[in-house]
Amino acid sequence: MAIISSPHFPVPSERRVMDERTVLDMWNQVLVEAFSVRYNVQRSKVPVGLPYTSASYFSGMKSVLDDWMEPLINTRNCLAHGQWIVAFNEQRNSVNQDRTKRLNSLTLWHLRLQRNLLKHLERLVFDLTATQYAFERDFDRHWANLKAAQSRISADKSKEWELLLQRRHLRGKAHIRRNYRRLIDAGLI
């Protein structure tokens, strides 16, 4: 919403985005509208009417939407509708096994990395719509960061991260006890 309501995003494009039925469709429409405006190509000609490099940018960003956004949006919707343990299908008349499995494997670690991935995608789309030179100039850096987030999510080191947090917590408690003992020994408490 921040991207499409910015002064850099044309009002007719904003209306077309808002007319889409689903959040994923809105993201796809933002991509089409942004590439259309930036490269002065008719919306119906995106991506085939784009120059090769621009079409490659579009293809890469579209793949992120297709591969990462749809499962993330579905998981978010399950949680928002109270389906914390078991996820249902769209009609809510049977269990959706894939969504339930995804929901049960979700951890804070995954959420943080997915948020990171979304920030990189958002930055790419913002640069595409709002900047004159930054999109092409910074694309490789943003893309590398986005791909790194995808790799970290796929590697799934959430268990190691949880153990690290537990060790930090225990070290912190020991540090507090040690400092408290020193204050008592020094007569300050």
Results as ranks from 00 to 15, higher is better:
4 I>G: 02
6 S>W: 02
9 F>W: 01
10 P>M: 02
11 V>S: 09
11 V>K: 11
13 S>C: 11
15 R>M: 12
15 R>K: 15
17 V>W: 03
20 E>H: 06
29 Q>F: 03
29 Q>D: 13
35 F>H: 05
37 V>P: 01
38 R>K: 15
47 P>R: 07
49 G>D: 07
50 L>W: 06
51 P>Y: 10
53 T>Q: 15
56 S>M: 11
57 Y>Q: 01
58 F>L: 00
61 M>H: 04
61 M>D: 04
62 K>R: 15
66 D>T: 14
66 D>A: 13
68 W>M: 08
68 W>E: 12
69 M>D: 08
73 I>C: 00
77 N>D: 15
78 C>F: 02
79 L>M: 15
80 A>S: 15
80 A>V: 14
80 A>E: 11
80 A>L: 13
80 A>T: 10
82 G>I: 04
82 G>N: 06
85 I>E: 10
85 I>L: 14
86 V>P: 08
86 V>A: 09
89 N>M: 07
89 N>H: 05
90 E>P: 05
91 Q>T: 14
93 N>I: 06
93 N>C: 03
94 S>N: 02
94 S>E: 08
94 S>P: 00
97 Q>I: 05
98 D>S: 02
100 T>I: 08
101 K>Y: 04
102 R>L: 15
103 L>Q: 11
104 N>F: 08
105 S>C: 12
107 T>Y: 07
107 T>I: 11
108 L>M: 09
109 W>F: 14
111 L>E: 07
111 L>C: 14
114 Q>I: 03
115 R>T: 10
115 R>S: 14
118 L>K: 05
121 L>N: 01
121 L>Y: 09
122 E>N: 13
123 R>Y: 03
124 L>M: 15
125 V>D: 03
127 D>H: 06
127 D>I: 00
129 T>C: 08
129 T>Y: 00
129 T>D: 00
129 T>F: 00
130 A>E: 00
130 A>W: 01
131 T>V: 01
135 F>L: 07
145 N>F: 01
145 N>W: 00
146 L>C: 05
147 K>L: 14
150 Q>V: 08
150 Q>C: 15
151 S>E: 14
151 S>F: 10
153 I>D: 10
153 I>T: 12
156 D>H: 05
156 D>W: 03
157 K>V: 07
158 S>P: 04
160 E>F: 10
161 W>F: 14
163 L>Y: 04
163 L>G: 02
164 L>S: 08
166 Q>P: 00
166 Q>E: 11
168 R>C: 07
168 R>Y: 06
170 L>V: 10
172 G>V: 01
173 K>G: 02
174 A>N: 06
177 R>G: 09
177 R>P: 03
178 R>C: 13
179 N>Y: 09
181 R>A: 11
181 R>P: 01
182 R>P: 01
183 L>W: 06
183 L>E: 11
183 L>V: 04
186 A>G: 04
188 L>Q: 11
